[in-house]
Design a protein around this nucleic acid. Structure first.
Lengths: 341, 341
DNA sequence: CTGTTAGCGCGTTCAG
DNA sequence: CTGAACGCGCTAACAG
């Protein structure tokens, strides 16, 4: 391993001079700078970060916390995509990205503790937002910089977060369905304690209400990614005497499952029933029919959260922010206008 | 920040004693151990890894290199799942996982250089295997510990890698199709320079050959995840006077695309054409029909590669290994036996 | 069984 | 413009 001393010796200057050259300190003659840089190249010098971090009391690294992978949710293409977004800015800023690897909530919590106390990272991004979250509380109590992708369950004004306007998104897409003539519209969502679900559902309810449509209780379904359990729920939905003519689904991946069940039941989309959903992951354009869905700009969600976090870690006085990433309806083929039978 | 010194002062012992307690050194009286541990608890001591790494000349961290995300391939649920596998063992071993974040090959290469030279990590896992790969060469030249998930393009016997027997898998699944009476079987694969594709395709070819079936050139299609370009290819396949009655597809995600196109063309699966594919990601059971596919145990692929890597980083003399993860055909509904029309 | 000393590689005073 | 000296927090070698 070639250190600062080695190249100091090789060039006949002192280690501190070399250090200054690395930092591009203006009060070093360009002559010696050149000389030193040359030696660095030749000897293959590379700074040792641990030494650097030790003195700098900062690591240019951020931790990314995934939801507990008990959640099958991890299989969602949402994650690679948001990681890509985060990566784009960590990379640009020469930051490093450390991933949580725990499976259960307890494991993850222990990991977060290590990361924070051990000074592994300068800050973290939470890729989920759940009610009453231990990790969020811990981070807050320790005044450790972090940002949440989604909506914090409390202290909204004290926690920087990056989110979509899920309420409006849910409202808009439902209104679109209503504009197409649908009056019996159901909602299928994921876990009930996730804010995305909650917000989108509220938007849906509000749209119904404003249009003077009845909000039927049986039309609300919550399920974890639609395995057998979800199947029954959907079947009961179809068994209703007043079957819905359209469904708002809170996630593209769930839509895929629903699409399958509908096909099993011999129900055609969009002829018999219309579907809309959220996220616009790659999948949504290769299903048949292709899904009308809301593009929430996952990549941007990631990029902006990383950007906000880094800003905060370099300047503690950076104010708390709430960043809303715009969404957009992507019209494809899963909706038809309702024609009275 | 509370350091070793603080707790030394608090307990009236020397810093080194504290250090020894942390390492659970046997020649420390259990009395002082207790005393020291108590103080650590009370003062909230946590070791600073950078200090530790600096002296240990090792970081308990591994780098995970994703393929360049120009590849849309990243959207594949394969990645979250393999990360989960890797995470399971890094977590158990108290290791840390650092993710590459570059988008282009050049960016990633620069990152790898930093990680290696800067001693960010003790070793890395490459989540792809491509012909003539710069990063592989670099790692080899620097004798830096790494393992490849997939097959190295050369120096097979000098690079530890974790792979499936993709050749056999391709052969088996094709033989299954043949056993169902199919004689005209096509192959659709991803990028041509990826070893997975190559191996699976060879298995397919061998099966045909052994069964005395003709290997039709027009039956081979290569495409990047089936956007417009892939569509044309598939359409040309269907336009052939001798249309295939079954298709072997090298990835579940591609299958999803093909399924869509087939439906567009009014071709029913499996009645008109049978489909089989690889990976058994979550998706493959929610499509309609559910896909008959080969389970390659993605999670295990990740876990084993992490395990092998960590073993190598702790004991440099650990021999090069080649670990083959078994696969298994998962029979679902995308295949029917061929009946002469 | 425990304390003292030195040093990991680097950045940062403080002198000059 | 540059060098010497110190310290970041921790471990290891050597004493005792």
């Amino acid at each position: 391993m070639v250190t600062i001393k080695d190249i100091a010796k090789a060039t006949g200057v002192s280690p501190s001079t070399v250090s200054r050259v690395i930092a591009d300190n203006p009060r070093i003659s360009s002559d010696t700078k050149k000389k030193v840089r040359k030696a660095m190249k030749e000897l293959g010098y590379h700074p040792n970060i641990h030494a650097r971090n030790l003195v700098a009391q900062s690591t240019k690294a951020i931790g990314v916390i995934l939801p507990s992978s008990a959640d099958k949710a991890l299989q969602n293409p949402f994650f690679p995509e948001i990681l890509r977004g985060i990566g784009s800015v960590t990379h640009k800023e020469q930051y490093t990205m450390m991933l949580s690897s725990g499976q259960t909530e307890d494991e993850i919590f222990a990991e977060v503790e290590r990361m924070v106390y051990g000074r592994y990272v300068d800050g973290m991004i939470l890729l989920y937002s759940r009610m009453d979250d231990r990790i969020t509380n811990f981070l807050r109590e320790n005044e450790f910089p972090f940002v949440i992708v989604g909506k914090p369950y409390e202290y909204m004004n004290e926690i920087t977060h990056v989110d979509n306007d899920n309420f409006s998104a849910g409202k808009e897409i439902t209104e679109y369905l209503i504009a197409q003539g649908h009056q019996r519209i159901a909602f299928i969502g994921g876990a009930r304690d996730l804010f995305v679900t909650i917000d989108r559902e509220k938007g849906y309810e509000t749209a119904l209400q404003e249009a003077g449509l009845e909000d039927v209780k049986d039309y609300h379904i919550h399920t974890e990614f639609l395995k057998s359990a979800g199947r029954e729920a959907v079947e009961s939905l179809l068994a209703l005497k007043q079957r819905p003519t359209a469904i708002v689904i809170s996630d593209d991946l769930i839509s895929l499952g629903v699409l399958g069940m509908l096909e099993d039941s011999g129900i055609r989309v969009p002829e018999d029933i219309s579907l809309v959903s959220f996220n616009n992951v790659y999948l949504s354009e290769i299903t048949r029919p292709a899904l009308t869905t809301i593009d929430i700009q996952i990549y941007e969600l990631g990029a902006q959260s990383a950007k906000a976090l880094i800003e905060k870690t370099v300047d503690k006085s950076e104010p708390v922010k709430r960043i809303i990433i715009p969404h957009k309806v992507i019209y494809r083929d899963s909706v038809s206008s309702y024609k009275r039978p």
